[in-house]
Design a protein around this nucleic acid. Structure first.
Lengths: 193, 193
DNA sequence: CGTCTATTTGAATGTACTCAAAAGCGGTGG
DNA sequence: CCACCGCTTTTGAGTACATTCAAATAGACG
């Protein structure tokens, strides 16, 4: 298991010595999923917090009409989980699957608790992660309130550089809240490429 | 100062004895603002976390065109702050003002820190509040991705019962991300009333 | 090479916005 | 108490943004 990326990720937010790092790492599990493979099925409880070391995941909601709406993407060096389900041990409202072959490091809630109890700095880390996610969401809401689909697409490209070449366009459309057909039209009109 | 509502609010999430409650209350300030009065001006640092005991606040962003977009409402028994500015001591990206004459209890960041240091349960409280806000935002994003303006309006009425009679319609439109003109049309079509 | 899925294109439709004007409502001053 | 002023809501017409449906094309994968 190559734990280097996740250690670097932790050290961005908190200071840790080697023994603390080792303790944390001892709880991690490594999972590899293929493209299209499901990591979390809506309805099941979300047991893990997932850290992506390679690849790309999406978290989405499937509405009554069967249409999928992408709430978030996660690529290398990012965390992803259905937080509500993870924290409250209820069944997940979102599903998570892979858009590329992906390597994930997972930690269970019970393990996370152990780590937090022994090393309170991790509690702080967790709060910081939550805050960061909160602010990202706030920004996204603001953009939906104030921008057209075109502006949101341009912002997406700025925010996730190169992502447009990694994953199918229809996934980006789903993230932006528009149809793939319309996104295609936008791209033609602007000759963005 | 009537501190009953805020105490009840705290006790929903954590257990406190009288001395702990008193300690917390000793840091609170009470402010009364009139309709239209500004509580936080975008650009200024957000010094306070605000608890509403009576009335209604809105937090909004003003875009380059001068159009206001409402990120959140807060009524009795709710908290409101520009969290990013409050936590990082940067200048606020949002403004907050009153839609009704409003009574607020305020707590400064430094005071909050003192309370958390002395009574760690408050740290937990703060995390729970953040989580709750996070989930509410997630829901809001999902709705923008998957619902029409009409469906969002109906959901708003369900979620904030009676609010439509308390505040101007244009404020609701701004919250929903549509124009007041269009909201008026929706209401006529549906004869909702 | 054939199959499956994603993307593009076009036409018709629906959703939401702009602009403009009229009507309604609330507060203020005489 | 009434008249006026300013702001909100309504209404209508015209336009722009975004979707649906259908069909053609292009890419990816076994």
């Amino acid at each position: 298991m190559n734990s280097d990326p996740i250690v670097k990720n932790l050290l961005k937010s908190i200071v840790l010595d080697q023994s603390e790092i080792d303790y944390f790492l001892s709880f991690l599990g490594e999972v590899t999923v293929k493209r299209r493979e499901i990591v979390l099925q809506a309805g099941d409880p979300c047991k893990y917090q997932n850290f992506i070391t390679q690849g790309c995941l999406r978290m989405f909601h499937t509405d009554r009409k069967g249409i999928e709406h992408i709430v978030a993407f996660a690529i290398e060096d990012m965390w992803m989980t259905d937080l509500y389900s993870y924290l409250t041990s209820t069944s997940a409202t979102f599903s998570i699957d892979a858009l590329e072959d992906t390597k994930i490091l997972q930690i269970e809630k019970a393990s996370m608790k152990k780590v937090c109890d022994k090393i309170p700095k991790f509690e702080r880390l967790f709060r910081l992660m939550l805050q960061k996610a909160f602010f990202a969401q706030q920004l996204r809401i603001m953009q939906h309130l104030s921008s057209t689909a075109q502006q949101r697409y341009l912002y997406f490209r700025k925010n996730f550089p190169g992502m447009e070449h990694r994953i199918p366009q229809k996934q980006i459309a789903s993230f932006l809240g528009i149809t793939p057909v319309f996104l295609s039209m936008l791209r033609r009109k602007e000759a963005i490429r």
